[in-house]
Design a protein around this nucleic acid. Structure first.
Length: 597
RNA sequence: GCCGGCGUAGCUCAGCGGUAGAGCGAUGCUUUUGUAAAGCAUGGGUCAGGUGUUCGAAUCACCUCGCCGGCUCCA
């Protein structure tokens, strides 16, 4: 019996070869990159140039979307020919001969020789002949892992999905290749399920839903990556932020407020000027002084701490600000709310003694757990460590790092959390405990983060006066609960498909009078709801009741209250719940009671 | 930033060398509505912006801006 996972991998790998064959059939001069398997499928990289005419301005023909169905069809033809994949070991010389027209393959051969790896070449020989060098067979440099015969591949269980650019060997200094992606499964049923998942993800896309639900907008004049928040969207932001603040306040945090720019010198001292480089939005004043929009809040909070000499008795000092940071992301990296240039962080910094670190981290951990439980997220934990092979990317000595990382590891152990460890995932000033949330579609997102920082206190000489009257070095904790409100909202919108739970819905209740005659009663209900702090609206527009119900359902309002003759007579409301239809008539007090928990 | 695909009314889109269209939304009137779309009428566009080609450009070319999918990056 074959292992399921291996079998599907072999199918995907084989399809990558067939993809290359199909592309070569259409573009015999295509240069091949690599074609590995990936999650749910495979891809293959190519350079495709086809001379078109001989005049001076002839341009290389490149593959376009319209070629994809044809390539897919060719792949199916190959599958139906019951082709075999046969591998044999070759010498570098033999390999180079076979791939003499394939510069990328030649480079790989060189790499393999350097690494003293064995060279294997796989051969597939389709019955339809076409111009493949050196014979009609297709050869690929490959360590194996194919199906034995294409008859093992279900021709209806794969699909080419998209074309994209990709750098050779993933390095942006290398030439860019054309990458064709495909998805593949053992059965058509699995493929259909996957395509349905993609469709569902597309349906929930926050960029689409956010505009539809009128939560945010973008303006070409304001600029890309700079979302503008509408009244409804702002309600969402404030609800979330208030919640975080409430949890923080209970644990001794204090709000502080800071400007959005600072002098170059601040960021030089913190290390951000060097570390962020081109990502800083820089400003030169008329007097020629250099400022930057803040890329992080820690240096500002640090300066608040530095305003006076603290006694150990006054520690920890816990400062929180919900404020924006600005990063000049490359335009191609921007995407909806997930990746923006103006990022609202719910940022806090704890200045404390070494011995207080554990307790403070546990407090933040509590906030994180409580906050995410509200949206129904289960969190997983990752300990993000520095990469010892790239010391130039981090501040501070190896000893400091080891110490800090060990401390976090202990806390995670004590919490009994099942944490993974991510080498190279640390911040440049310290290791982190990161929290990941799994959304309703099963996708994982990094959300909250707790960072232990022993470096910035060093750089800014942060101390307290201890029991002996000495200046004692303190440590800093960076704690963001949502991380970025923009990003967290993008996750929430998709998680709930825009149907926010009652506590979060920008509009919680819409009142629908059956006709104009019941407007007064409806207004009376509206007042009562608003007095009870319910975010309620009245829809008395001149439309049929059915139409107004439809519109409110599409706006994903949690409750609709229909009031007409019967309700006026009995001083009640008819309650319709989102997605559930009419749930009956009740007194308004009963309704208020019902929604209060 | 790079590769590819796009940009037409508030939204979704058609038109693709002969001078601007539909549905929804908006506005007005009629209707006074009982749980997912009442009827009629009206308005609405420097066809993203710019420069060319052409007798003529939404349509073709080039540049800029913006969006989407990837790549690179994400402290």
């Amino acid at each position: 019996m074959e292992n399921q996972g291996l079998r599907i991998d072999r199918i995907r790998h084989s399809l990558a070869h067939l993809l290359a064959m199909a592309v070569l059939k259409k573009f015999p001069d295509a240069k091949l990159g690599i074609g590995p398997i990936i999650e749910n499928g495979f891809y293959y990289d190519f350079v495709i140039t086809e001379e078109r005419g001989t005049n001076a301005d002839s341009r290389g023909r490149t593959l376009s979307e319209t070629d994809v169905p044809q390539i897919e069809e060719t792949m199916r033809e190959f599958i139906s020919q019951n082709l075999e994949f046969t591998g044999e070991k070759v010498t570098p010389k033999e390999a180079k001969k076979i791939f003499k027209d394939q510069p990328f393959k030649l480079e790989l051969i060189e790499d393999f020789v350097k690494e003293e790896k064995e060279l294997t070449i796989y051969r597939t020989c389709p019955s339809t002949t076409y111009n493949l060098q050196p014979t009609t067979c297709f050869f690929d440099l490959c360590r194996g892992g194919h199906v034995e015969n294409t008859s093992e591949i279900n021709p209806d269980a794969f699909k080419l999905t998209k074309i994209a650019g990709a750098y050779w060997k993933g390095n942006e200094k290398n030439p860019q290749l054309l990458r064709i992606y495909g998805v593949a499964f053992e059965t058509k049923k699995e493929l259909d399920a996957h395509l349905a998942f993609l469709e569902e993800a597309r349906r929930r896309d926050h960029k689409r839903l956010g505009i539809e639900l009128d939560l945010f907008t973008f303006s070409d004049l304001v600029g890309s990556g700079l979302p503008l928040w509408t009244p409804k969207g702002t309600i969402l932001r404030n609800i979330l932020d208030d919640l975080v603040w409430k949890l923080r306040k209970e644990r001794g945090y204090q709000q502080v407020d800071i400007p959005h720019i600072a002098k170059k010198e601040l960021y030089e001292r913190s290390g951000h000027w060097q570390k962020f480089g081109d990502e800083l939005f820089k400003i030169t004043t008329r007097e020629g002084r250099e400022f930057a929009l803040k890329p992080m809040n820690c240096p500002h909070h640090i300066q608040i701490y530095r305003r006076k000499q603290f006694s150990y008795r006054e520690l920890p000092q816990r400062y929180a600000s919900t404020t924006k940071v600005y990063r000049d992301e490359q335009t191609g990296e921007l995407s909806g709310l997930s990746r923006v240039r103006a990022i609202t962080q719910d940022d806090a910094h704890v200045f404390c003694r070494n011995a207080q670190v554990k307790e403070e981290i546990l407090k933040i951990w509590e906030i994180v757990t409580e906050f995410y439980a509200l949206a129904g997220f289960n969190l997983t934990v990752r300990l993000s460590l520095h990469d010892p092979n790239r010391p130039e990317e981090y501040l501070g000595s190896p000893e400091i790092w080891q110490d800090a990382e060990e401390k976090l590891r202990e806390i995670i152990q004590e919490k009994g959390a099942d944490a993974s460890e991510g080498i190279g995932e640390a911040a440049f000033y310290g290791p982190k405990i990161d929290f990941m949330a799994r959304d309703s579609l099963g996708r994982e997102w990094q959300v909250a983060t707790i960072q232990l920082d022993m470096n910035l206190p060093e750089r800014f000489d942060l101390t307290c006066v201890n029991e002996k009257g000495e200046h004692e070095r303190i440590v800093m904790l960076h704690a963001a609960i949502m991380g970025s409100i923009e990003r967290y909202l993008s996750i929430l919108i998709e998680h709930f498909a825009g149907a926010f739970p009652f506590w979060l819905a920008p509009v919680q209740v819409t009142i629908l009078p059956v006709s104009e005659k019941f407007q007064e009663y409806a207004k009376d209900i509206l007042t009562q709801l608003r007095e009870a702090d319910i975010r309620a609206e009245l829809d008395d527009s001149n439309e049929t009741l059915g139409k107004r119900i439809r519109e409110s359902e599409l706006r994903k309002i949690p409750y609709l209250l229909v009031v007409g003759e019967r309700e006026v007579a009995s001083d009640t409301i008819a309650v319709r719940e989102r997605g559930k239809g009419d749930t009956g008539t009740m007194d308004i007090d009963v309704f208020l009671e019902r929604i209060s928990h």
